[in-house]
């Protein structure tokens, strides 16, 4: 674990040794995949040294992606970032899977600050990447088997993506309606309306009590002056 002299961890779990190991493993895997597509590597190189901050609100987690031919995932970044995304982990995942990130941003609760061009360009690179892994595989297995395997994987990928989209769309309803971990929107609205009515009724009652109190005081003053 990494811990500073005040006993606090810089960058949270991501800065711990297991966190560093996980990030390094991910980066090495990504670098190997990027090597399979020279066009993608060149396009990423054009974004060199630009930093995208991804801030998850639930759970609280900050990740900095430093662009380049070999993108790095950082837990600590002391300079200005080029673009910052803030939202729940579920929404950020849906954004990552979205084909049109800027359109999805309009519909979601994710906040974007800084240069949206970086996000758009990175998304376009990811969408248009064409990693020739079939070619790499064909070196060892021959072209026919590599193509067959490629067809199976592509079909599986489409199904998995469709399933992931459905799951992510249904996730809020499942959490609210089935697990009852969070209240449904309608229930929250009804509760808010009831609360507003209760507040108004309490305000009215308070005003009435104040008026009665004032009347009582005036009557007491009147009867005292009559007795004199």
């Amino acid at each position: 674990m990494s811990e500073d002299s005040n006993g606090e961890q810089a960058g949270g779990w991501l800065s711990s040794m297991p966190g560093v190991a996980a990030r390094m493993a991910f980066e090495q895997a990504a670098a190997r995949i990027i090597q399979l597509d020279t066009v993608t590597a060149q396009r990423l190189q054009a974004l060199d040294d630009r930093v995208l901050q991804v801030s998850s609100t639930t759970p609280v987690l900050d990740i900095y992606v430093r662009m380049g031919e070999k993108p790095t995932i950082l837990a600590v970044w002391e300079h200005e970032v080029d673009c910052r995304l803030e939202g729940s982990a579920v929404e950020l995942m849906r954004l990552a899977l979205s084909d049109e990130p800027l359109v999805f941003l309009q519909q979601s609760g994710i906040t974007l600050t800084g240069n949206s061009d970086l996000l758009n360009t990175a998304a376009a690179i990811a969408r248009e990447a064409d990693f020739d892994w079939e070619g790499q595989l064909a070196k060892y297995t021959g072209g026919i088997f590599a193509h067959m395997l490629g067809s199976v994987v592509r079909s599986g990928h489409r199904s998995a993506r469709k399933t992931a989209d459905i799951m992510l769309t249904n996730l809020p309803e499942f959490i609210q309606e089935e697990l009852r971990v969070l209240p449904p929107v309608g229930e929250v609205d009804a509760f808010r309306e009831d609360l507003d009515e209760l507040r108004l009724a309490a305000d009215r009652l308070q005003a009435r009590v104040a008026r009665l109190d004032k009347d009582l005081m005036e009557r007491q003053d009147q009867s005292a002056s009559d007795r004199e």
Binding site: S2, A10, M17, A21, M24, D48, D49, L74, A75, V76
Partner: peptide, 18 residues
């Protein structure tokens, strides 16, 4: 192999730029 992680953490705190 852990020295690689220590060095990676150093790299991260270097805040070095282009």
């Amino acid at each position: 192999g852990i020295h690689r992680l220590w060095k990676r953490f150093t790299l991260e705190l270097s805040a070095i730029r282009k």
